[in-house]
């Protein structure tokens, strides 16, 4: 692991504001701050999990990194090169190294292209292989994701959900990328199929020393696959830590309540659970101070006034809470 220290992706102060337009003249009356100052780095060969509830900005963050959505502000460096502001042609060249796997294997494959045409098109567009070489490569790719080369002439509708997700993975791998952004890759799949795809993603990552930004809302899947995990709430990262630390000793009350909300499979020990009050607030009008304070079981007067910065509270463990030192996984018992 000589490359382990090299940073492959560095995101600094990333922001994406979507305008809210109203009226006849479509005047901008406000902004939805979907991503509001997100910074993180992913090392070569590392898996960074990005978790949060719907509307927290995790998907928008993933798309901004690939510039599938143009960010409002901030910097994204890939392999040391700034990609925000790069012209389209260069961006296209770079995308060969950064690929995305989508959530819904039903809508992310073109229904009118056979598997062979779909994969050959990717190979020729990027100038990687033609003719007989492409033919051979398609077979290799299908074998790599656990399908058979004999299935190459079928169309997407002839495959099951899990097999389609394998095709999505094959398409992403066709260009030999360094970074893969996996946006909820297993949440649309059946329970018995999820484990197959998680294992496949993990095997491929190890074999090809790929780097993943793994976006999901399921904390147990993320724990299984990630080296480090970032938790997002209302457009901001509230906690970022090595996987083991985050799950064993979370240092943000939101992480504590997220973990406690997951139904446990253990029927012999019923756990005490913190049930958060209320809904996730509207990202167009985020609360003052700490955005989590209206739902927080630890909130103090200062939380409504002052926004806590993301700071290192233990080696490699960052939390954006004024009282991070007082948060422990035992907190729920007192609530």
């Amino acid at each position: 692991m000589t490359e382990a220290t090299r940073t492959l992706l560095e995101v600094t102060n990333l922001k994406k504001y979507f305008p809210i337009k109203k009226g006849l003249l479509s005047r901008t009356v406000g902004h939805v701050r979907a991503v509001d100052g997100v910074s993180f780095a992913v090392k070569q060969g590392e898996v960074l999990g990005l978790v949060g509830e719907s509307g927290c900005g995790k998907t928008t963050t993933g798309r901004c990194v690939l510039r599938l959505i143009e960010p409002t502000e901030g910097s994204v460096k890939f392999d040391g090169q700034e990609i925000i502001g790069l012209p389209f042609s260069e961006m296209r060249r770079l995308r060969r190294q950064m690929q995305i796997i989508f959530q819904d294997p039903y809508s992310s494959l073109n229904p009118r292209l056979s598997v062979r045409r779909m994969l050959t098109e990717v190979l020729t567009v990027h100038g990687l292989a033609n003719g007989a070489a492409a033919r051979e490569r398609v077979g290799d790719l299908l074998r790599l994701v656990g399908l058979s080369p004999s299935q190459a002439d079928r169309y997407p509708h002839e495959f099951s959900g899990g097999q389609r997700q394998r095709l999505g993975i094959a398409r992403a791998l066709a260009v030999e990328p360094k970074l893969i952004i996996a946006d909820e890759p297993v949440s649309a799949l059946d329970v018995s199929i999820q484990a197959q795809i998680v294992n496949l993603l993990r095997d491929l990552q190890k074999e090809m020393s790929l780097t993943y930004l793994f976006i999901a809302h399921d904390l147990s899947v993320v724990e299984h696959i990630s080296n480090r995990v970032a938790v997002m709430y209302l457009g901001k990262i509230v906690e970022l830590a090595p996987s083991l630390d985050l799950y064993r000793s979370p240092r943000h009350p939101y992480t504590v309540s997220l973990l406690s909300a997951i139904p446990s499979h253990d029927v012999t020990h019923k756990k005490t659970r913190i049930v958060l009050k209320g809904d996730v607030p509207n990202p167009a009008k985020p609360p003052s101070g700490c955005r989590f304070h209206p739902r927080c079981f630890m909130a103090q007067p200062v939380c409504a006034v002052e926004e806590p910065p993301l700071r290192e509270v233990a080696p490699g463990h960052c939390s954006a809470c004024h009282f991070a030192e007082e948060v422990s996984s035992k907190t729920p018992a007192g609530v």
Binding site: L219, S220, S264, H265
Partner: peptide
């Protein structure tokens, strides 16, 4: 038994998940 074995469990990190082969 297979369904239970194939689920990743919080706080229980294993190298690879057990798998029910095939599809529904």
């Amino acid at each position: 038994a297979g369904l239970q074995a194939s689920l990743p469990k919080l706080g229980e990190v294993v190298d690879r998940l057990r798998v029910i082969p095939g599809t529904v």
